[in-house]
Write a protein that binds this DNA or RNA. Structure first.
Lengths: 190, 190
DNA sequence: AAGAACTGCAACAGCATTGATGCAGTTCGA
DNA sequence: TCGAACTGCATCAATGCTGTTGCAGTTCTT
């Protein structure tokens, strides 16, 4: 039957839920149309167990999206976007996000209902991201006439591109390149 | 039964194939798991007709990917990547590509077999893209130490990001912003 | 240790999709 | 205009997925 809001599961049940979500990410990333059976097998769990925790395939998907979004939000917070110097915050946040995104790529690019928890989290993350960029702008690192929302979207795109193929490279090295490209582009250095 | 290599179809049959491919792009872009029935309906065609032209769903998908890749290659060629001045070529190519990609976004981001026609075309396009960048580098528009493959990937990412939401904006305006961002980033202008 | 929560397994009905086929009617091309 | 190509429609079997239920056995919690 499945539940939508899980209130205090038993320890082993909680472990099952985690295993299912991780398996779903792994399996669906390779084959978005994979069956519940395949996900269950990858999780080392019976298919019926999935149905006990998640009413629908849809419910599973949304739980997956929410779970990943929460991790991403945590990754951003860990970079101290409001207090650390802009460049430091950007670097730390980028490195953190790269790690979360490489492990939860599928779940994080999932199209979700406009009134789901995941979208709310993503909006919050975007807001925090803009805040950091604004602080960088105040420090003259970004042109004062720049459209910060475009800058943020470019930033997202650079992160996404960095994870194609380089999924297991050093996050700090990737972060350095991302920020350098974001701020300076490809032009010759003066 | 369906055919893989279509040799000289009758005029109306050719029209059907086009309608099917366009409908497939439209429908699958919104719902990647859509049924043949839905695609057929969107194409104004009976489902059996699709099966007559394409052996199975997979064959349809591959034909879709190839068709879109050919259009993209054409869009690049139209920008004269080998002869026009680098900046002009980049602008024209970008504007052309934006139009093709906005109409065939799904088909162009389709994961395909490594030995399909589509991948070969995409590799060819990537080569042409690198060529233009190299010419821009020779003209001191791009740092001589820059990793051109990274620059190309950033370029792709900027194009992709520009098509999120702005699918129907002026291609020339978008192209201008893309190239400006690619070359100069977000830093203050000196 | 006892009861509750949890799980695997087997089995079920329902459903949608796929791919095929035959046929009658139309549309094209030479 | 004549024949071949093409299409829609109705129908078919096969298949795989979903979601549910009952039960017996295991694992957690207190």
């Amino acid at each position: 039957m499945g539940e939508t809001a899980g209130r205090s599961l038993r320890a082993d049940a909680e472990r099952s839920v985690r295993a299912i979500l991780e398996a779903a990410e792994r399996v669906l990333a390779e084959e978005p149309g994979a069956s519940m059976e395949q996900i269950a097998a990858a999780a080392g769990v019976a298919r019926t167990t999935i149905h006990r925790r998640f009413a629908n395939r849809q419910a599973l998907i949304e739980a997956l999206a929410s779970s990943a979004a929460r991790r991403l939000a945590q990754a951003v917070d860990d970079g101290r976007p409001d207090t650390a110097p802009p460049l430091v915050a950007m670097h730390r946040i980028t490195a953190n996000v790269l790690q979360v995104k490489s492990a939860w790529a599928f779940a994080l690019e999932l199209p979700t209902d406009p009134d789901s928890e995941a979208v709310a989290l993503h909006q919050d993350i975007a807001r925090r991201c803009i805040t950091v960029l604004k602080r960088a702008q105040d420090d003259k690192l970004i042109d004062e006439a720049a459209d910060l929302d475009w800058v943020r979207r470019v930033y997202y795109a650079l992160i996404g591109e960095s994870l194609r193929g380089n999924a297991d490279a050093d996050p700090d090295a990737l972060a350095t390149r991302i920020i350098d490209t974001l701020l300076h582009g490809a032009r010759p250095r003066s």
